[in-house]
């Protein structure tokens, strides 16, 4: 296999194991590019990539921007505060205007689930989902899988515990789809108030007790807790949350000896992850490094010439 089926990357759902493997394998070669003195290849020379961000995210935007620039694409950032969004232009009008300027790829982050899919159906450009609502964040899951495979040598047969606010997490959904497709076992853990109905139908095992969820796990993936969820009554307080669902050295001890601790960032130290654990796991920064390589791979693989007209 040497190509992706779609012109877009909207989610991990529906991707085959071969497609995921292709992206991860391709990312490995791009990881080398980032290690060189000249961190640039001309693969996307002359292509224009638009970062269309309707939701603030320095980290993901920077990662996509670097990925595009290291492929020699021209990358333009449009974010809500600086665009016509504030003037009330519709999503479709904004996107059509951008496309009229002849761009090849639009990377969309939006607080509304489905916004990238909406655009992909109406634009010729490739659309990459950089996170939509609570739906999917496919490049995050790909970089997580890349990192796990790099550190543990495989994905198949591993047990991965994802802990935190599953209901409001696009990272959790994309990882559940990806990891189960690649043959890993996924446990999700969090308070029932943050567990979306039917999540087990997506192939995850549901836990409310974190000690049990991390027992023997090869990977413990912590999710960021949005502190404003407290106001919505989803948990009574940070202290209790940290006690029930925070990752501390004792809980790390319950996981497998070689267990990886991961976090998509930014971390709330002392809430979902204790500082000792956060500082003891270099993997979290490797995730960031690998993010650029994975995004380069995705952009490269989607950049095939004739797909747009197909």
């Amino acid at each position: 296999m040497s190509s992706l089926q779609s012109k877009d990357l909207l989610g991990i759902k529906g991707m085959t194991a071969d497609e995921i493997k292709l992206i991860l394998d391709t990312a490995a070669t791009f990881r080398d590019v980032s290690e060189r003195d000249i961190k640039k290849v001309p693969a996307l020379r002359g292509r224009t990539v638009i970062n269309l961000f309707y939701e603030a995210s320095t980290r993901t935007r920077t990662s996509f921007e670097l990925a595009g620039k290291r492929l020699s694409a021209d990358v333009i950032n449009i974010s809500t505060s600086t665009s016509s969004v504030v003037k009330g232009e519709t999503l479709l009008d904004t996107a059509r205007n951008i496309e009229a300027m002849k761009c090849d790829m639009i990377i969309v982050r939006h607080s509304c689930s489905g916004a990238p899919e909406f655009l992909s159906k109406r634009l010729k450009s490739s659309v990459i989902n950089a996170g939509d609502g609570f739906h999917e964040h496919p490049t995050q899951a790909l970089l997580d899988m890349f990192t796990i495979r790099e550190k543990l040598g495989r994905l198949e047969g591993l047990t991965v515990a994802i802990v935190g606010d599953i209901a409001h997490s696009r990272v959790a959904r994309s990882n559940i789809y990806g990891l189960t497709t690649m043959g890993a076992k996924v446990r999700v853990c969090g308070p029932p108030t943050m567990m979306p109905p039917g999540i087990e139908r997506m192939g995850a095992e549901v836990h409310y007790n974190m000690d049990k969820a991390v027992e023997g796990a090869d990977v413990v993936m912590m999710l960021r807790l949005q502190l404003e969820r407290q106001a919505a009554g989803l948990f009574p307080g940070v202290r209790e949350y940290a006690k029930l669902y925070g990752l501390n050295p004792a809980r790390v001890g319950r996981a497998a000896n070689h267990a990886l601790v991961m976090h998509p960032g930014p971390m709330n130290r002392g809430v979902e992850i204790s500082s000792e654990v956060a500082d003891g796991t270099p993997v979290i920064l490797d995730q960031v490094t690998n993010g650029v390589a994975v995004r380069m791979a995705v952009m490269f693989l989607l950049s095939g010439g004739s797909k747009a007209e197909a």
């Binding site: 759902k13 939509d132 739906h135 109905p197 999540i199 997506m202």
Partner: peptide, 13 residues
Amino acid sequence: NEGVVSTELGLRG
């Protein structure tokens, strides 16, 4: 509707 479809689509139920 809140249910498995809203969970999959990431829409509030």
